[in-house]
Nucleic acid binder design. Structure first.
Lengths: 194, 194
DNA sequence: GTCTATACAGTGATAGAC
DNA sequence: GTCTATCACTGTATAGAC
């Protein structure tokens, strides 16, 4: 973002993605993106004719990158499934900054625009599907694995909300720990009754 | 909001609270509040000199009401603690509309203003404390009850995020069900090892 | 492709009459 | 207490030169 040799388009995208994370799409003006990126007005509207175009490119880049990153971790078949789940849940996360993608679900500019909602939808759909597959690998029936995958993803998102509301990163850890501490006992009980 | 005999101040507050829920504080202009409430410009700035004053009154009313409502349910000592927890978790919720209070944690106008953050903080702090007490009643050690309370509140918030992202109210139910299905087995295991 | 200058509607607030 | 009129400023976008 500070590198003057980066193409204008990349600098604009970097700035937009950072600003969207910090203050949302609704709360970020094209003018701010210009100031942070150090690019002129004309370049912005050359590469991204409307704010919608800029937002779509920035959001898609962020969701794509995030899904790729988590996908590698969850599908690493060298490790047992429960270990992968716990590793995913206990990943270090920027609790106070919030989830770059989760926060978009309460961003009016995003939710009111079908094209902008789509990458957000696809990210969470893909993430839940990945997590569900890992739960199935643990031997859980499909319907139980289904609900538990939603729960796992929700714990992380809810942990972000709590951490920000309470201004305390430990809130996210507590939520995840509370969930993880139930994971193995519940699994034992289910295996025992089968 | 449609009752023309309601005092201006109340009509303004109703309109603001509804609009904040639907589109956030950042995304709601004083002018919109005027249109929806059907009140004149002067009245708004008479009762609420700045947008900050209106937001503070609207947010405080919402958090107060929400905490009162959930408090009654959780402290009803006629019912066993686990039953109260499950009742709280499985409460009918407007999944697609989102949480009136949780959404404020990604609202820039709220998070950038200490006075507006305060009711949001107090709501979640109060809610987690209530839930933790109920977990302690189940016989869980304090530290486990602590983490599990954060998890319970996070599941609901994360369920909202998922439901909105996927445009599917069933996502919130799935997350809650996934959590609830682990609650009793985990409790059994803990009681057994004590 | 990149720049500066400009246009125009909406936002947040004030003034002053009733 | 309530109203209409007005204002400075920002957000979003266009025009046209280099």
């Amino acid at each position: 973002m500070d590198d003057p040799d980066l193409p204008r388009r990349e600098r604009l995208l970097r700035a937009a993605r950072d600003l969207y994370w910090a203050q949302g799409v609704e709360g970020t003006s094209p003018r701010q993106v210009l100031e942070v990126s150090g690019v002129g007005q004309g370049s912005l509207y050359h590469h991204f004719p409307t704010k919608h175009d800029l937002s779509l490119a920035a959001i898609s880049a962020t969701t794509q990158e995030a899904l790729d990153s988590v996908s590698g971790e969850l599908t690493d078949t060298d490790r047992p499934p429960v270990e992968r789940l716990v590793a995913y849940l206990e990943r270090p996360r920027p609790a106070l900054a919030g989830c770059k993608i989760g926060r978009l679900t309460s961003d009016r500019s995003v939710m009111a625009d079908d094209e902008l909602r789509s990458p957000v939808h696809d990210y969470f759909a893909g993430l839940v599907a990945l997590v569900q597959e890992v739960f199935e690998e643990t031997g859980l029936p499909d319907d139980v694995a289904h609900d538990r995958a939603y729960a796992a993803v929700a714990i992380v998102q809810g942990g972000y909300v709590l951490a920000r509301a309470l201004d305390d990163p430990a809130a996210l850890r507590a939520a995840v720990d509370g969930f993880v501490s139930m994971l193995e006992p519940a699994l034992q009980a289910e295996v025992a009754t089968r």
